[in-house]
Structures are given as structure tokens and as C-alpha cells.
């Protein structure tokens, strides 16, 4: 009786794992099979044509690239500096805890709320308009917690001995941080950053009212231009327009590109983490 209960219980646990693996593979395989049918060089490098029913998704790829780069330029320094403060400088326990609670709370804010904030502040108040800049700032605030947490963890893992050795030759705290701590923590920070990019590249709701447009023939040439973006493109193809028999295949193609992009980004992050752990000799 006890034995049977155990067998059933452990089986249930295995089923959960199976559920995860199957769900992931189902999405990946289904979208890949359908998506690769429309995928070719032209699809990647051409602009959309004939009211979205033909052509490629080049501007959306570029738009997503620009948005991700902008996001990182904004969020990476802020995140790393916050983490440095939390780990190396902040003394007061209560203050540290308060900041951490803020980070967690920010991480829990729904993406569409960031979109509202971006709309009211960057688009309207600062008058950046619907633009790469507004979108990148909005996304940047959203992924800030990801970067702070990853950097904190990485900085915390730098052995105290390294810091002491650096102080002992006369380095200042700031020199020690920039020359010893950050380089040592770099793999962890990069992993976090990459995960942040993956998140930013895949998000739709925050850029819905702040950065994207459905259709654009020319590529953006300034940060005040609006852009197309892969995730929004999928949404728009599925919900706008009338020629769904032409649009859905393009959506499959776009989905496979986006999924491929985000999955490779995640995969690289995981690889760097595993490699970093192996290479660690201290």
C-alpha cells in the first residue's frame, strides 16, 4: 500500500516533467515545421509588399534589433551600478532590503502597465513620440530587475580574497570594483544581460503604444522614428488586415524567426553559464 502510493506519486512527478518537455517541443516543432516552409533569404531580407500579403520581414528584424540594443544601452549600466551599490557599498540592512523589495515589485509589474507608463511619460510628456527611444526606455525599465538580480548574484560570487589582494596593493575600492570585481563577475552579468535581451526582444505589450508600427517601407534612420518589430508583426498579421490566407503563412515565418532568435539567445546564456561554472577555478 505504502509502496503503491510512492510509485504513483513518483510517477506523477515524472509526468510533470514530461508535460514541460512535451509542451516546449510541441510549440517549437509545430512552429518550426510550418514556419520553415515560408522561410528563405528573401523572406529575411525583403520588405513587406502588397499590403502585407507578400514580401519579407526585414524591417521587423531590424526594428527588433534596434529596440534590443537601445534597451541594453539603457538598462545594463543602470542595472550593474545598482547591483554594485547593493553588494559593495550599501551598509544599512533596511535600505538594502527596501531596494530589493522594489526590484522584486518592479519585476512583477505587468508588461502592459509598462506600456502605459511609456506612453504617458516618454511618448507624451517627454515628447519622444512613438519611437525607438520611447520603446527602448520602456523595455529598459522592464528588464532592469533581470539585470540587477543577475549582476548582484555574479558580484556576490566574486571571492573576498580577490578584493583583499587588490586592496593590499593599494587599489581603491572603485579600482578594485572596476578592475577585479566586474571582470570576474562578467560571465554572470553577460548571462543576465542576454536573458534580458531575450525578454526585451520578445515583448509586445510594452512597445505596442510606444514604438511600433504595423508597416514601414523605409528603415528607421533615427531613434525618433517608429519601427516594425517581430513580435508585434505576428500579432498584427493575425489580427489586422483582411487577407488572412496570405497573412497567416507570413506570421508562421515571423514566429519561427522570433522563436529562433529568442531561443538561441536563451541557449547562449545557458551555455555561457555552464561554461563559466566549469572554467571557475577558485
Amino acid at each position: 500500500m505504502r509502496k503503491q502510493k510512492e510509485l504513483i506519486g513518483l510517477l506523477a512527478l515524472r509526468i510533470s516533467i514530461l508535460f514541460v518537455v512535451i509542451s516546449f517541443l510541441a510549440i517549437l516543432i509545430f512552429i518550426s515545421i510550418k514556419g520553415f516552409k515560408v522561410l528563405n533569404i528573401g523572406f529575411l531580407l525583403e520588405v513587406p509588399k502588397d499590403g502585407m500579403t507578400k514580401g519579407g520581414i526585414f524591417p521587423a528584424i531590424i526594428g527588433t534589433l534596434y529596440l534590443s540594443i537601445g534597451t541594453i544601452i539603457f538598462a545594463l549600466p543602470l542595472g550593474v551600478l545598482s547591483a554594485i551599490y547593493l553588494i559593495e557599498y550599501a551598509k544599512h540592512k533596511g535600505l538594502i532590503k527596501t531596494i530589493r523589495i522594489g526590484v522584486d515589485a518592479l519585476a512583477g509589474v505587468p508588461s502592459v502597465v509598462f506600456g502605459l507608463f511609456g506612453l504617458a511619460v516618454f511618448v507624451k510628456l517627454f515628447n519622444f513620440g512613438v519611437s525607438i527611444l520611447s520603446g527602448a526606455l520602456t523595455l529598459g525599465i522592464m528588464i532592469l530587475p533581470v539585470i540587477i538580480k543577475a549582476s548582484e548574484e555574479a558580484i556576490l560570487a566574486v571571492p573576498q580574497e580577490f578584493k583583499e589582494a587588490s586592496f593590499a596593493v593599494g587599489a581603491t575600492k572603485w579600482q578594485t570594483i572596476t578592475k577585479i570585481v566586474l571582470p570576474t563577475a562578467l560571465p554572470g552579468i553577460i548571462t543576465g544581460t542576454i536573458l534580458g535581451i531575450g525578454r526585451a526582444a520578445g515583448e509586445t505589450a510594452p512597445i505596442l503604444f510606444t514604438a511600433v508600427t504595423f508597416y514601414q517601407r523605409l528603415l528607421p534612420h533615427s531613434i525618433f522614428d517608429e519601427v516594425m518589430a517581430l513580435p508585434y508583426h505576428i500579432y498584427a498579421l493575425m489580427t489586422e488586415g483582411t487577407a488572412s490566407e496570405y497573412q497567416v503563412p507570413i506570421a508562421y515565418g515571423t514566429a519561427v524567426v522570433l522563436l529562433g532568435l529568442v531561443m538561441s539567445i536563451n541557449f547562449i546564456a545557458i551555455l555561457i553559464r555552464i561554461r563559466g561554472r566549469r572554467a571557475k577555478k577558485w
Binding site: E161, F162, E164, A165, F167, A168, V169, G170, T184
Partner: peptide
């Protein structure tokens, strides 16, 4: 400046990475 004059070698061998 003091630490330039007074160097230190530690118990736990600690070269930088």
C-alpha cells in the same frame, strides 16, 4: 599610499583570474 609601502601575501593563495 600606506598599502604601497606595506605589501601583503595571504594565507589563501589568491592570484587574480
Amino acid at each position: 599610499h600606506l598599502r604601497k609601502k606595506v605589501g601583503m601575501v595571504f594565507q589563501k593563495v589568491n592570484p587574480f583570474p
